[in-house]
Design a protein around this nucleic acid. Structure first.
Lengths: 156, 156
DNA sequence: GAAAATCGTCAATCTAGTTGACGATCTCGA
DNA sequence: TCGAGATCGTCAACTAGATTGACGATTTTC
């Protein structure tokens, strides 16, 4: 008998922590294996947010649940790594929009592919239906407070 | 219609991040409300591990998935805050066991009570059975690799 | 008994965030 | 229209929580 069944009463928080870390670690290990060695975990949600189009640092900060200063530092790292660049200025002279470079878009797509694989492995273990239920239940609980999904944050 | 249903395809990793953060934030908010104002998120899993009995810093490090140096710093913080103390030395002169003080035990029990309340709120939203399924599914996936539950780490 | 491993700690460094301040720019209402 | 106030991005200083590397003191092993 596996150890798993004994631990069914482990705190959810602990399970979330482990599950999150496992996904992110596996993702970055596979990225590294494919040559993407300068990708930091913090980039993930930012690349995802930038996928849809240019964003200001402040907007990115709001989406990620961090201060604009922190977002600004993250953007700086993305610029230096060549995954993002300053886009065309809008009418507003205060805003300096950020957008993905081709390299950044390539990374985003590669990561998305790997990540899909990882979730498929989950489906292999617990089944498609249970996975869908898990996702749906998570969404209902975390948006229970105000009906909206709160911002992410790459945690502590 | 709530926003929740639209987002069912959000990455699990993101949901885990949000769910974890929400639980930990709510827990510490309630702890603070009850007067426990010097509790840092990192203490949580350490108090839990120490609940069963004395541990060395190195053992704590292994359980939490961090280096012994990091565990040592965490222990130092727990000692200074009065939640732990050096216990009786074993035969091994290298080991300096750590154990909970009464104050630490009180904190641990308070936190556990609050945490149980939080999980009960989850049960109120998705139901007892779905909550049990969620927990069981998480456990099976994260222990799928080697049949054992990996160490926690308070993440990034 | 000597070689090797382990325990705890020190020191330096890194990542990822925070708060506070500030100049530049935009918006809105008197 | 113009001035008060809000917002954008950045600078600086700091904090939390981790890392690697080194080392003395012990213990274990052969």
């Amino acid at each position: 008998m596996s150890q798993a069944a004994d631990d069914v009463q482990l705190p959810l928080a602990r399970l979330f922590a482990i599950a999150y870390r496992q996904l992110i670690t596996d993702l970055h290990a596979e990225l590294a294996r494919r040559g993407w060695t300068d990708v930091r975990p913090a980039y993930g949600f930012a690349l995802l947010a930038l996928r849809e189009g240019p964003l200001s640092s402040s907007e990115l900060g709001v989406l990620m649940g961090m201060t604009k200063q922190a977002a600004s530092k993250l953007v700086e790292a993305l610029l230096e790594a060549g995954y993002a660049r300053r886009g065309e200025t809008t009418g507003d002279g205060r805003v300096r929009p950020i957008e993905l470079t081709d390299h950044g878009r390539q990374l985003q797509e590669t990561a998305e592919g790997i990540y899909t694989e990882l979730e498929n492995r989950w489906a292999d273990v617990i089944g498609e239906d249970r996975l869908a239920a898990l996702r749906a239940d998570l969404v209902s609980v975390i948006s229970a407070d105000d009906g909206e999904l709160p911002p992410v944050r790459p945690l502590w």
